[in-house]
Design a protein around this nucleic acid. Structure first.
Length: 665
DNA sequence: TACGGGAATATTTTT
DNA sequence: TATTCCCGTA
């Protein structure tokens, strides 16, 4: 009889330099130690989701996994950077070699690498929403669709329809039928325009954000490419899985090798991207896609005080759809969250800004405070007040720096250098010249396409008329930029000089815009090449209000203003939620649909759970509008919350010294 | 054909 | 309230 010798595998953790057992709770440790096969980490707000991912990255690398064979997909590039920085801090520099970023960023990398496989040159340009609106406008005019008797949808609506059809994987017909019923009689022309849009992008070698995903999926239908990509992705991790849509879920499946070493992390209660085709039920379907999925739940909250977490749980309980989780914390109860009713928007702004100053006097740093709101415009009034009181702030969500018309004008010149087939950029560049309009510009672009030297306009035989001099100086600029080896920053300065008189003519508020352009040249020193600059600006856009900070002009860490969507995954000691009104949150557009209403409720839940120590919820009683003043009603999600969970505060005029007011402590 | 002015209109959240 | 669209004029 043969003798068996039992050999027990050494417990792995003995080999690790990081003491995971002491740093993580049981569930977190489970996730961090998970090695092979699919896993789903359902992580409630503030339960250490990021921490878990960071330590798993470190742990995999410690156990000998090559960092560059790990793919970490996150919702923003900022999140990816932060995670890899933290991982490097707990382990070592190897963690920086982990490949990571947003779906869009990773897809764009793959596409640049394999572009010829799908008939694109590798220097294809990524166009942003504004660019794609311009294309739609152009095509609509070309197809003469606006001359029909009944009103044709505006370009932004057309774009929204096309994008929805891709992200929700429905036909144009289905999208219009379901969400844009009023345009159903235009359906043929909308479909015609959508097809023309697809063709235009292919002809001009540009891709919009949706194309990055669609074309990657297309690319991966090539078996050879698929195998190469999968071979590189030994371990895949996806953050914020609740906000992936069907298309992204499919991509995740494609990225993952047969070994199925995939870990998804998310929280269905925090799904807030339904409008982009995300389905919070997607996360619960994960085990169906990857059989044998190990499910790990993180339910202990380390972020918020007991009172804040209790309020969050109460709000979430009001959802039509029930979530089988109640977060708990061992933190102290803390202060009761405040409900602040103000007279109007102005008073709300004064309350918030005054409170920020008070907190700063108590040695709380501005960067540890945030003001959150439903819509980007909800903070306009507050921004004015903060500027008046000279409180520095950065606003996340809303307009991006590179989306401003004057920045796009300057960037368009760089774009035509990088990709001379980029007709959208050419159109922008040419239209800046006095005397050139849509017609002349399109004729010139026609000539460019067959020209071997597209920057030398004198070859075109079209340099005459009112725009002669303008065209010649453009040639001069572009040839200068092409022949000299300028850094991106130097190039921006050259373009600025050329652009200045045109900017002054085009915009009444040119002093502000010219200042922006100077700041832009300063920021551009951070880019290595034209390509990299364009790519970064498109996929990781700079917040418009961050310009002074980035250009090194601010000396104090700014307070954060953010839409709730952009606040995802972040946390602050003191959080203000402003404009907490019915019709704002929930948005007036969601009122007729239960599913939409639930999503708005989750949005408020996300906002509340951003707070660590103190939460202030405020709303104005009167809104001043164009048609007179309107009386408002606080958010319906607060209806069933009583005063022992959300304490009403009384505001008393600052000048009235005799009265008691929380503002004066 | 370019461009400015006045009327119409729809109005969120992001990569 | 700001943007988009349309039309008249140069």
């Amino acid at each position: 009889m043969k003798k068996f010798k039992l050999r027990r595998e050494e417990p792995r953790h003995l080999e690790y330099q990081i003491e995971y057992e002491n740093l993580l709770n049981k569930a977190q440790l489970d996730a961090v130690m998970h090695q092979n096969g699919p896993a789903l980490v359902v992580a409630g707000a503030g339960t250490g989701k990021t921490r878990t991912l960071v330590y798993r990255v470190a742990r995999l690398i410690e156990s000998g996994v090559n960092p560059s064979s790990i793919l970490l997909l996150t919702f923003t590039r900022r999140a990816a950077r932060e995670m890899l920085e933290r991982a490097s801090a707990v382990l070592d520099e190897r963690c920086r070699k982990v490949r990571g970023g947003t779906f869009h960023f990773y897809c764009s990398q793959l596409l640049h690498e394999y572009a010829p496989k799908i008939g694109y040159p590798s220097n294809f340009t990524i166009i942003d929403t504004a660019d794609s609106l311009e294309v739609i406008q152009l095509l609509r005019t070309e197809l003469k669709l606006h001359q029909k008797s009944k009103r044709f949808p505006r370009k932004s609506t057309v774009k929204a329809i096309i994008s929805a059809s891709i992200n929700k994987q429905l036909s144009i017909h289905e999208v219009v039928d379901q969400n844009y019923d009023q345009f159903m009689h235009h359906i043929d022309n909308i479909e015609l325009l959508a097809r023309a849009y697809v063709k235009y992008k292919a002809d001009n070698f540009v891709m919009d954000f949706d194309d990055l995903l669609v074309n990657t999926l297309h690319l991966l239908s090539d078996k050879e490419v698929l195998e190469k990509v999968r071979a590189k992705n030994k371990y895949v991790m996806v953050d914020e899985y609740q906000d992936t849509n069907a298309l992204q879920a499919e991509l995740v499946r494609m990225f993952t090798s047969e070994k199925q070493n995939i870990m998804a992390v998310g929280d269905d209660a925090q799904s807030i991207y339904r409008f982009r085709g995300a389905d919070h039920k997607n996360i619960m379907r994960f085990p169906d896609i990857f059989s044998g999925t190990k499910i790990i739940k993180l339910e202990e909250n380390y972020r918020s005080t007991g009172n804040i977490l209790h309020l969050a749980n109460l709000v979430l309980a009001g959802a039509r759809e029930k979530y089988d989780k109640t977060l708990f914390t061992s933190r102290e109860k803390g202060e009761l969250p405040a409900l602040v009713k103000t007279e109007d928007g102005r008073e709300q702004s004064r309350f918030v800004s005054q409170m920020i100053l008070n907190l700063r006097e108590q040695n709380i740093e501005l960067k540890d405070m945030a003001v959150l709101f439903r819509n980007s415009r909800d903070s306009f009034d507050l921004e004015i007040e903060l500027n008046k009181k000279k409180i520095p702030f950065i606003k996340y969500g809303g307009q991006k720096f590179a989306e401003a018309a004057h920045i796009k004008d300057v960037l368009a010149h760089v774009r035509v250098l990088v990709n001379p087939t980029d007709a959208i950029a050419w159109n922008r560049v040419l239209n800046l010249i006095e005397g050139i309009g849509p017609k002349t510009s399109s004729e010139l672009i026609q000539w460019l396409k067959s020209s071997s030297n597209p920057y030398e306009f004198s070859d075109s035989g079209m340099v005459n008329g009112a725009y002669k001099n303008g065209l010649l100086s453009l040639s001069q600029l572009l040839i200068d930029l092409k022949t000299n080896d300028f850094t991106p920053s130097e190039a921006i300065e050259h373009i600025n000089t050329y652009y200045k008189p045109r900017c002054e003519k085009k915009y009444d508020d040119h002093p502000k815009r010219l200042k922006d352009l100077e700041a832009f040249a300063a920021i551009a020193t951070g880019y290595r090449s034209y390509d990299q600059m364009l790519e970064e600006l498109a996929l990781d856009p700079i917040e418009a209000t961050a310009v002074d900070t980035l250009a090194g002009k601010e000396d104090e860490n700014p307070v954060i203003l953010s839409t709730i969507h952009s606040a995802k995954g972040l946390e602050w000691e003191h959080v203000f939620i402003i404009q907490c009104l019915d019709g704002v949150i929930p948005s007036g557009f969601s009122l007729s649909n239960e599913e939409d209403l639930d999503e708005e409720l989750r949005l408020l839940y996300v906002a509340i759970t951003r707070a660590k120590d103190m939460l202030y919820v405020s709303y104005p009683v009167i809104q001043h509008g164009g048609f007179g003043d309107v009386f408002t009603k606080p958010s319906r999600f607060l209806d069933d919350i009583n005063e022992s969970n959300l304490e009403p505060w009384l505001l008393v005029d600052e000048d009235d010294e005799s009265s008691e007011t929380p503002l004066l402590n």
